[in-house]
Design a protein around this nucleic acid. Structure first.
Lengths: 329, 329
DNA sequence: TATCCAGATTGGATCGTTCAAGATGGCGAG
DNA sequence: CTCGCCATCTTGAACGATCCAATCTGGATA
């Protein structure tokens, strides 16, 4: 087993002091070029890597970002988080940060976990996915000046903290316009109960697109909890009440349910889902696709901006989704 | 902002020395009960949390486990990793460890990342998902005595390192027996090219179950890369060549392809997939379900066993899958 | 030649914890 | 009574990096 290589080893090898090596790493511009090159040679020759624990003790920064991983609930939307996390890990890595996972069963426990992570690991920042009205987690973090970014807008106070989000209304509007352009006029919407920021946003995009085209959306939407069975139930209801020729859904789960309700129906009713999950791709369901890798990258950008004390960076980023067209639309 | 609470703060508050506080935390049995309680009161009164960086500097252990997160390839199987990671995070947490994510595009880079993570963060252990014949990653880790566990057997040397796996052969055998019991005799198999450990295992389970029932599996299987389109193609081929009444697939992707090829075919052909992904649940595809949470928990068990120097724990765990029956079988 | 200054380099202190070794006090055996 | 032992607790040093202040160096200036 090779001896442990510390900054002192490098210093001896390059015939300089520890501090000079440290300067080469943290403030290269104040070291004479000749010396700098000698030190860098020694670093690569010895395979030196700065010990993060020691560095952290002095600087108080861990270069660690925390992200929550949830049990996949209905299972379909799980892959959204999966892809987001992948992007986050990749971008954070490039920025010199690592992603630490945590789980929690409820808000209270999650906040307790924050305290634990901050106290023991001195985490630099948090990334929260999905926030709700009056979220106690963001309030707790903000109250302690802990840097964090949310993927998802804080619907009740847009300037409360940095966030990255995808413009859901634009997505459903785009889907609706696509259906309008295909000649549809009876375009229904299946979404989530009133009062959820994301759900209301997606419904609003559909309604506005219809009104802009001179079509009255009144009575053409239905609300329920997420899930395939629920989607199927509401689609059956729509069929007998308003007989739409197309439907836009707030999620792929709902859209899949709708598809099942529409099996065998003629003429075929167009369906567009939301999230472009693998399930959608698998069954050929058209869906609104969120740029998750881009969203993750922007989260890291915002965080590094805050962490490096760069207050000029924007604190809100709203990305545009794309429509993934498949044979259901 | 409250002052930073260190072990010295606690020591003063409880009127003992630093070392006694440390002993209460790490070796409670050598501290007199009265003293121990006084210290514990001080700890909770002050909200003290041991600083991991300082601890790590002294002990050389980070209480960090690394796991790789991959971009979801065909998208369907991504959720498998997702669920595994969730279980890993949860169980590791309970054992006092945290999960750190990393990504890498190829083996060489992944190994470079190992060096980085070990050198900079002094990671305690790695969890690898999926290994292949002659995997350079496990060889590298083993060569440096880095503790690690794989989820998936090392097919070429079962005793090379600790692993947890799910008995794929048992899963396909169970699926096949279910079909046999339903009266099928013409049961085909769609799997992956010969030479992959996992693929060969799953095919073997199917073949053995058939032979055990006195049915000759010769000519009843087809091989291809994973994917929905490929599954569809091979199913069409099977239909015209051997006309099976049921088919077992090595993955849900292949099974979904098979389902598409079978749409409208009468009498219906039964299909059973593998992995019980959300897609399977969504479309009603019967599938072999892996106990992913259990697998993750066992991985953590094995790792803590190795890390705590407990060499009596078993080093291999083979879990049994369950059959999730749905309307396709 | 002496002085000064900016830039480069040096040694010591420090972060919070655990390890190793030493101090204290009570109790039983010789 | 004294010694040694055990249980318990305390003290000093170390982990590996960065920060701080002091020192060194070489060239320009008086």
């Amino acid at each position: 087993m090779a001896e442990k290589v510390t900054i002192a080893t490098v210093a001896r090898h390059a015939r300089v002091s520890r501090q000079t090596v440290s300067n080469v790493l943290n403030a290269p511009h104040i070291v004479r070029e000749e010396t700098r090159l000698r030190v860098q040679d020694a670093i690569s020759a010895l395979g030196y890597r700065a010990n993060q624990a020691a560095r952290q003790m002095r600087t108080g920064r861990s270069r660690l970002i925390a992200a929550r991983i949830e049990p996949t609930r209905d299972g379909i939307n799980g892959s959204v988080l999966d892809r987001f996390l992948h992007g986050l890990t990749e971008t954070a890595d490039a920025a010199g940060y690592r992603v630490l996972l945590y789980t929690a069963t409820d808000d209270e426990r999650e906040i307790a976990t924050y305290g634990d992570l901050l106290g023991t690991y001195e985490l630099d920042a948090f990334v929260l996915v999905g926030t709700k009205y009056g979220d106690p987690r963001t309030a707790w973090l903000a109250g302690r000046d802990v840097p964090f970014v949310t993927f998802g807008r804080p619907w009740d106070a847009l300037d409360a903290h940095p966030w990255v989000d995808v413009d859901g209304a634009a997505g459903t509007a785009q889907a609706t316009r696509h259906l309008l352009a295909a000649g549809h006029r009876q375009i229904a919407f299946i979404g989530w109960p009133l009062g959820s920021g994301v759900g209301d946003d997606r419904r609003a995009g559909w309604g506005e697109a219809l009104r802009a085209a001179g079509v009255d959306p009144t009575g053409m939407h239905r609300e329920t909890e997420d899930g395939i069975a629920e989607g199927e139930r509401l689609m059956r209801d729509l069929l007998v009440t308003v007989a739409p020729t197309a439907v836009v859904c707030a999620s792929d789960s709902l859209a899949l349910g709708a598809l099942q309700a529409l099996r065998g129906i003629h003429p075929p009713v167009s369906v567009i889902g939301f999230d472009d999950t693998p399930v959608a791709a698998a069954v050929g369901l058209a869906s609104v696709s969120q740029p998750l890798g881009e969203a993750a990258a922007r989260c890291v950008d915002l965080l590094t901006g805050v962490l490096d004390g760069n207050h000029e960076t924007p604190t809100h980023v709203l990305l545009q989704p794309a429509l993934a067209l498949r044979h259901t639309a």
